[in-house]
């Protein structure tokens, strides 16, 4: 009963936050010194043309009305037109999103694998855990772009093992239905495409994974260690359970909560990493799109990317909360 309630309330909170995000982006647009009419028509437009354009864009109406229109547009998937590409921002985003989604998801998987390895190795005091930890920490202190640059110098230029840019080097790679090359390759029975896509993904995804891996791994390790010194573990030991049974049967379930929350939060950092690393690797995703939009002050494009990534983040974290609530019997009652 209460769980339905919890999901409902969490969903409502999510909607409110997305609305706040939309309001913030709208406010930024108003605060911005850039004039959209100027951006559309250029410097030589006549007074009449400017007035007509202002009217067409609804800029002569009260601000509340403008916000209403803006929201209504958002609901219909209308993010305005890009000043740079002259296409609807929604169209542009749809073209760029799959590449970014594939990169971010791969980065997240790598981050989780590294975090879990790091946490369990330190908790169980596996030989070499200290060295692994040191390496990971050092990696997390290096800026994402430098990791990418080092990777290119080492694995592309020096060893020649991995490609340095783009998503694929296969010309006739399939382009549907998911637009994720790793999956599309499999769906079309082209393992060579999947393999090639994975090779392209490995460096950029690892570069964005190291920071989140350390953050998640630290949280997981400290909650594992905290749970291991708790009273119920002493009880389990007194029952004669083995350390393995205790860790897997009792501790992990209680310890993952904090790490899962941290993972949700780290997705934000990961998005920022994606934007940076896409430039280094010439990855045709949202990062490249926003990087090309920033110098020309293409506000609709920047706002679109912000709204998209922000909403994704909010939805992911709401989902994390709901999953956690479902897994914790203490929230029931």
């Amino acid at each position: 009963m209460t769980q339905v309630r919890f999901v409902g309330q969490r969903f409502a909170a999510m909607v409110i936050i997305v609305l706040a995000l939309a309001a913030a982006v709208f406010a930024l647009q108003k605060m911005s010194p850039l004039d959209p009419v100027h951006a559309r028509l250029g410097g030589q437009a006549s007074q009449g043309a400017i007035a007509a354009e202002r009217h067409a864009l609804g800029l002569d109406r009260p601000i509340v009305t403008q916000f209403g229109h803006y929201l209504a547009g958002l609901v219909h998937g209308d993010l305005g037109d890009s000043y740079r590409t002259r296409r609807p921002v929604t169209t542009d985003l749809l073209a760029y999103v799959p590449a970014t989604a594939e990169l971010a998801a791969t980065g997240l998987i790598i981050a989780l694998v590294l975090a879990i390895a790091f946490a369990f190795a330190s908790t169980l005091r596996v030989r070499g855990a200290g060295l692994f930890r040191l390496g990971l920490m050092l990696g997390a202190s290096v800026p994402t772009f430098l990791l990418g640059v080092f990777g290119i110098l080492l694995f592309y230029q020096h060893f020649g093992w991995l490609p340095a840019s783009g998503r694929t080097s296969i010309g006739n790679a399939p382009t549907g239905p998911t637009h994720l090359l790793t999956l599309d390759g499999l769906l079309h029975g082209r393992p060579d495409v999947t393999w090639d896509a994975l090779k392209h993904l490995l460096m950029p995804a690892t570069a964005i994974a190291l920071g989140p891996a350390v953050a998640i791994g630290r949280v997981l390790r400290s909650s594992l260690e905290g749970e291991l010194s708790s009273d119920y573990v002493r009880t389990a030991r007194a029952k004669g359970r083995s350390e393995r049974q205790i860790l897997l049967g009792h501790v992990v379930r209680n310890a993952v909560g904090a790490a899962v929350s941290m993972t949700g939060l780290q997705v934000g950092l990961m998005f920022a990493g994606v934007l940076v690393v896409e430039q280094v690797f010439g990855w045709p995703g949202l990062g490249l799109y926003i990087a090309e939009s920033i110098p020309v002050a293409d506000f609709p494009a920047i706002a679109g990317v912000t709204l998209l990534l922000g909403s994704a983040y909010v939805v992911i974290n709401a989902a994390v909360d709901v999953i956690q609530a479902a897994a914790d019997p203490r929230i029931r009652v």
């Binding site: 913030a24 911005s32 934000g268 920033i294 920047i302 909010v314 974290n317």
Partner: peptide, 21 residues
């Protein structure tokens, strides 16, 4: 919480980009 519910780095990018670098 409203602020924390948004991805800080992405938000920062939006703010700078719209105010002008």
């Amino acid at each position: 919480d409203g602020f924390l519910a948004l991805p800080a780095p992405v938000l920062a990018i939006a703010v700078v980009a719209s105010l002008g670098p």
